[in-house]
């Protein structure tokens, strides 16, 4: 293993992504990039625990929703700056991840996935009950201008904020995979029993990584709520989000750092295209085809885009993801 060369492809890739927002100032283009970065970020966070650690979570929307609600409510109801709100969101994400992890990490693979859905759904119902019991409406985030309130007139600020988030997640993923925790996480994902027999406290490793993943997702949820300016339980706790985080990573390549970004870059524009360009009336056709695309990808390229790339150019990309994928 020649160590020195390792970061290069990933670094180049991230720099290229960083230049993209400067290429055009068209609002739609930037909006699309913001979404790509943001969902790549979510997918990257999901990939930490579910890709590297193989703990298949389908309840990550719980962190997303909690993040959106903490930031949104603190700002809309109490006027607290979203910057502080997002930080608190992150802490909320950590607390929630520890609770969910405590309840579900002893379950075997698929039961874990189902339990995370159950947690997210239970939370959705609770928040619905709490917020919508009287009004039946979601919460609109007031649009006060200024940096302090995370409100910008130019889309490019949002794009770069999303980019920074993605950069943080990628850096964290890179750092983790090169560390003892990362090695232990991979071992846990491969074979938990064997890992335990070698002295790995798999439960603790999973909790730590789940907390990191939950933190990022909740922070992103806070940002998302400031970006869309409207939150409603059925929306920000929708199981569709959980599935999307997973789908992007799977299509791009689970358990690789670049995978979630590639998946998001491919599928976010595609689904937006289906939703908006074909026109509202035909939206179902879009999702219909989306479903078919999903099935086709799972059946015919099970390893995702990263697998394809590694087949095409083994030498260059083999070292791009973390060890031996």
């Amino acid at each position: 293993m020649k160590k020195i060369k390792l970061p290069n492809p990933l670094l180049i890739f991230m720099i290229i992504l960083g230049i993209l927002p400067l290429l055009s100032s068209q609002h739609f283009y930037l909006h699309m990039l913001t979404l790509v970065f943001l969902f790549a970020f979510f997918s990257e966070a999901w990939n930490l625990i579910s890709g590297f650690g193989k703990q298949f979570s389908l309840g990550h929307v719980a962190f997303f929703g909690i993040g959106a609600y903490v930031t949104g409510i603190l700002y809309a109801d109490y006027g607290i700056s979203p910057w502080i709100g997002i930080l608190l969101s992150g802490i909320g994400g950590i607390v929630l991840s520890l609770l969910i992890g405590f309840a579900t990490f002893r379950l075997r693979a698929f039961f874990f996935a189902l339990s995370t859905i159950a947690c997210a759904e239970a939370l959705r119902v609770l928040i619905t009950y709490w917020r919508l019991g009287s009004t039946g409406l979601g919460t609109t985030i007031p649009a006060a201008k200024g940096f302090k309130y995370l409100t910008f007139s130019n889309e490019i600020y949002y794009t770069y904020l999303a980019y920074v988030l993605l950069l943080l997640a990628v850096a964290a993923a890179y750092k983790i995979t090169k560390s003892k925790i990362g090695y232990y996480l991979l071992a846990t994902g491969e074979d938990e029993e064997a890992a335990r027999s070698l002295g790995v406290n798999t439960y603790r490793i999973k909790l730590i990584v789940f907390a990191i993943s939950g933190f990022f997702t909740a922070v992103g949820g806070g940002f998302y709520c400031m970006y869309t300016r409207y939150i409603e339980p059925s929306m920000v706790f929708s199981i569709d989000f959980s599935v999307q985080f997973a789908v992007f990573a799977i299509v791009g390549g689970m358990g690789t750092i670049a995978g979630p970004i590639l998946g998001s870059a491919l599928l976010v524009p595609l689904s937006t295209f289906f939703r908006s360009w074909i026109g509202g009336l035909f939206t179902p056709i879009g999702f219909f085809s989306y479903g078919i695309i999903l099935i086709v990808i799972i059946l015919f390229i099970p390893g995702g885009i990263m697998k394809l790339i590694s087949l095409v150019d083994e030498k260059f990309f083999k070292k791009l993801p973390i060890p031996e994928k």
């Binding site: 997973a246 689970m254 879009g286 219909f288 989306y290 479903g291 099935i295 799972i298």
Partner: peptide, 24 residues
Amino acid sequence: DAPEESQIIATFGLSFVFQFGAML
């Protein structure tokens, strides 16, 4: 013989197809 996560995502895709097919 696919891993569990592939089964979940693929059948989720099928669910999309049915749901939006029904909508159409």
